[in-house]
């Protein structure tokens, strides 16, 4: 293999032999899967008719998707050219997808349609409604046009400071937006959500429609746990006071709350990752191999 497809590592003969064996095994596995796929399609009437119903491009697409999936999975054994090709393709198509998507969904209707409505209406957006204030729209669109050009100047070899202007604007808007939302939704609203009656009461309605309120033990426990949890974790984050005495004990309790929080988060994360893998296997078995 030439240097274009390596990372510059020299392989020893023993490693190369092992590598050849690996690739032979993987190729054998791949061929076996293909044979299985064809065998299933030819024996299973339903699968065969489904295959016929698919267009040629859909069938090619499923095969391509299957090989891409296996290519990424091959990394589990070790890093290899098959995986690297898939990775490179992913980077290329993703960058292009985002750029094309941003171009047609945002730049054309929000920017170019205001700068040159006639051109955009004639060639890209025939349903474009004429603006009531085209002059003002044009003038206002010049600002993001200029700032956008300055942002792209970052790619130029010289004068990169020019891109600081649009970056300053992006930071300014983000700071302005987040200042309000952080205080409102993540600070005040959270304090408000913590400040709830510690003694919980349960309302039950009997058959006659009479509502009675009773003491809710677990609701009360939950209320206490919530308040104590928030305060103790906050005390752990309070680094301007030495963690000694009452603050130290509270901070220690806060760490325990955080550990339970992270334990719960770990459980949910595992579930998420397994689901992703299950979906890929479903694709390989059902859509590609036609089994399961």
């Amino acid at each position: 293999m030439n240097e274009s497809m390596t990372n510059g590592n020299d392989e020893k003969p023993a490693t190369r032999r092992r590598s050849s064996f690996l690739w032979f095994s993987l190729a054998l596995l791949g061929i076996s899967l293909c044979v299985l796929r064809v065998a299933v399609a030819s024996q299973d009437g339903a699968a065969a008719s489904a295959e016929a119903a698919r267009t040629l491009w859909q069938s090619i697409g499923i095969w391509v998707a299957a090989f891409m999936t296996l290519g990424i999975f091959s990394f589990l054994y070790k890093d290899n050219p098959f995986y690297k090709v898939c990775e490179s393709v992913l980077i290329g198509v993703s960058a292009a997808y985002w750029m094309v998507s941003a171009f047609w969904s945002t730049l054309v209707p929000q920017l170019f349609a205001k700068l040159s409505p006639t051109l955009v209406k004639s060639y890209a957006m025939p349903s474009l409604t004429p603006s009531e204030t085209p002059g003002l729209d044009f003038a206002l669109a010049l600002v993001p046009l200029a700032l956008g050009g300055m942002l792209l100047w970052r790619l130029a070899p010289k004068g990169q400071w020019i891109s600081v202007w649009p970056i300053a604007m992006v930071i300014g808007v983000t700071a302005g937006l987040r200042l309000i939302s952080a205080v409102e939704s993540d600070f005040l609203a959270q304090i408000s959500a913590t400040m709830r009656p510690l003694i919980a009461l349960e309302t039950t309605t009997d058959a006659a429609g009479v509502a009675t309120r009773s003491f809710d033990f677990w609701g009360t426990v939950g209320g206490f746990v919530g308040v104590i949890g928030v305060l103790s974790v906050l005390s752990y984050f309070l680094f301007s006071i030495e963690h000694k005495g009452v603050v130290g004990k509270s901070a220690r309790l806060g760490i325990w709350f955080l550990m339970i929080t992270f334990g719960g988060a770990f459980g949910l994360t595992v579930m998420g990752r397994i689901t992703l893998l299950a979906q890929r296997f479903e694709f390989l078995f059902k859509d590609w191999l036609g089994i399961g």
């Binding site: 939704s185 959270q190 959500a193 949910l268 994360t269 595992v270 579930m271 998420g272 689901t275």
Partner: peptide
Amino acid sequence: STGVQVGQLLPYYPKQMEGLLVAVK
């Protein structure tokens, strides 16, 4: 929400968020 992100959303439920579906479960 995904299992990974849902932790960030828990404090919003139920006051700021009426319902929350936690991961594939």
